[in-house]
């Protein structure tokens, strides 16, 4: 990926900002009062997101300028994430959760582009729906818009390397990206709220029990829906998918 000079500068700035905020708060951690510990984590996770968001911004900018006609697909992929993250589906644990919808876009547009799409969805939900939150935006962006999409992207690439068919690859990519998002959420919560007995591990098991187990059937649903959408796009948006490097590879 070639970047212009200004783009490189802004990206570097993002990385520096990330480190400055990230390390500054870590070293301050001991001085933060009891009730404010999570603020610490809010800032760290937010800081970690910055470089990804910057890279995502340029990735989308590049896609739009170089592959103008794929803009419609990008918008559709964003709308897809919007729909899926609004659907709270019942699960085997007796709780409900919602899919993320970010895996599909990651396969087509690369994982960093989804950081931007994901944060838009999260902002909408945090501001209007009291779902998620502005203080936890960083942590949620990291799990849903960065960690999940990167796993989806990697899983898809690995599947293709192993000569697995496209549809099966899409299924595993979307499914595992979705599941991983909620595993990251559990880790984030366990880090911020270690149990008095058993510490981080005990908390992690508790949180994984809620988030990961609830998510398993939903992750399968997300995988299946992603395959359906991709089949549709394969038959109606061949030129765009070819331009994005999805077809024929």
């Amino acid at each position: 990926m070639t970047r212009t000079k200004t783009e490189r500068r802004i990206f570097t700035l993002g990385v520096i900002l990330s480190f400055v905020f990230g390390t500054a708060t870590i070293s301050n951690a001991m001085h933060i009062m009891e009730g404010y510990l999570p603020l610490n984590y809010c800032i760290i996770w937010g800081a970690i997101c910055i470089p990804f968001l910057v890279a995502g911004f340029f990735s989308i900018k590049k896609t739009i300028s170089k592959h103008r006609k794929t803009l419609l697909i990008l918008v559709m992929v964003g709308a897809y994430a919007f729909v899926l993250s609004a659907l709270k589906i019942p699960s085997v644990t007796g709780s409900s959760s919602h899919p993320t919808g970010t895996g599909l876009g990651a396969i087509l547009f690369g994982p960093s582009a989804m950081a931007i799409i994901g944060i838009i969805v999260l902002l909408f939900q945090a501001i209007l729906l009291a779902h998620g939150g502005l203080t936890t935006l960083g942590a949620n962006t990291f799990s849903m818009a960065i960690a999940g999409p990167f796993v989806s992207y990697a899983v898809y690439k690995i599947c293709r390397k192993m000569n697995v068919s496209k549809s099966v690859g899409v299924f595993f990519a979307a499914c595992l990206g979705d599941l991983f998002t909620y595993c990251v959420t559990a880790v984030q919560l366990a880090m911020a709220h270690p149990s008095e007995v058993g510490g981080f591990t005990a908390s992690l098991i508790e949180f994984l029990g809620i988030f990961a187990i609830t998510q398993i059937p939903l992750a399968i649903i997300e995988g299946l829906v992603a395959v359906v959408v991709m089949l549709g796009l394969e038959s109606y948006a061949k030129p765009e998918l070819t331009e994005l490097g999805y077809m024929g590879v």
Binding site: V75, M76, V83, S85, A86
Partner: peptide, 17 residues
């Protein structure tokens, strides 16, 4: 509000398709 979110997303998606 959740319906609006799903509705908005679905209409854009459907328009594209």
């Amino acid at each position: 509000l959740f319906c609006l979110q799903a509705g908005l997303g679905a209409s854009v998606f459907g328009f594209g398709f």
